[in-house]
Design a binder for these strands. Structure first.
Lengths: 110, 110
DNA sequence: ACATATACCATATGACACACAGTATGTCAA
DNA sequence: TTGACATACTGTGTGTCATATGGTATATGT
């Protein structure tokens, strides 16, 4: 694992939570999320996403229901009100971080 | 530890590396960095920053030198060329993430 | 039949933010 | 002159999470 890969991994923490909370305003299942994000140029490992979905559900930020009527059983996740609150907080943090980076970039002018 | 605090912690991963790499275009020592960032409204725990500085130095992204001439011995860190490369990569990732969030926000209109 | 796609899960590993605890010197005011 | 507070750094946890590895099981096209 080189430094940049590792750095990207670290940068993805938190970010991915925000992405999922934004995306799941419409109910979707895990495998679908992976492919939708892939289309947007964002590769997310299944083994990263599935645990994340479960963690967010445990926290009450997502709700889930199994749909067995379709060809393959699918677990649909959707954001809850609590999840929207969390999303708001994450967005605030993200905006604040953006401002910090902008300020520093101007000072460094790199 | 509530969810938002924890989320902020996760959001800080990677972000803080980028901040340090931007800031250390000018040589600074740890305690000074903490206070400079504090002034900018960014509270960074000493116990987070010091290990981070050491890790970045191990990676070759920072160089350090002790200055014993001042009242208190201070360890000055400065970004290296390798660190600038890493910084460039982190900035790219950050910009890409920003675009993703923007796109998703528009779709969700939240 | 068999490969490939779909769809999910369990366990282990390693990195890192932060907590907790400590060492040691400098400064300033009562 | 003492003792509180600031300065400046270090060491050793702990917990969370991204990712690696390695599954299970069904569907679908050839």
């Amino acid at each position: 694992m080189n430094e940049v890969d590792n750095a990207e991994k670290e940068m993805n923490r938190g970010f991915l939570q925000l992405v999922v909370l934004l995306l799941l305003e419409k109910a979707m299942y895990g495998y679908m999320i992976v492919r939708v994000l892939e289309e947007q140029g964002l590769t997310v490992d299944e083994n990263t996403l599935y645990p994340l979905l479960r963690r967010l559900e445990e926290k009450g930020a997502l709700s889930s229901r199994w749909d067995a009527t379709e060809a393959k059983a699918r677990k649909y996740y959707e954001v809850t009100d609590q999840g929207r609150v969390l999303r708001g907080s994450l967005l605030e943090i993200w905006v604040k971080q953006g401002k910090t980076i902008q300020t520093l970039r101007q000072e460094v002018r790199s």
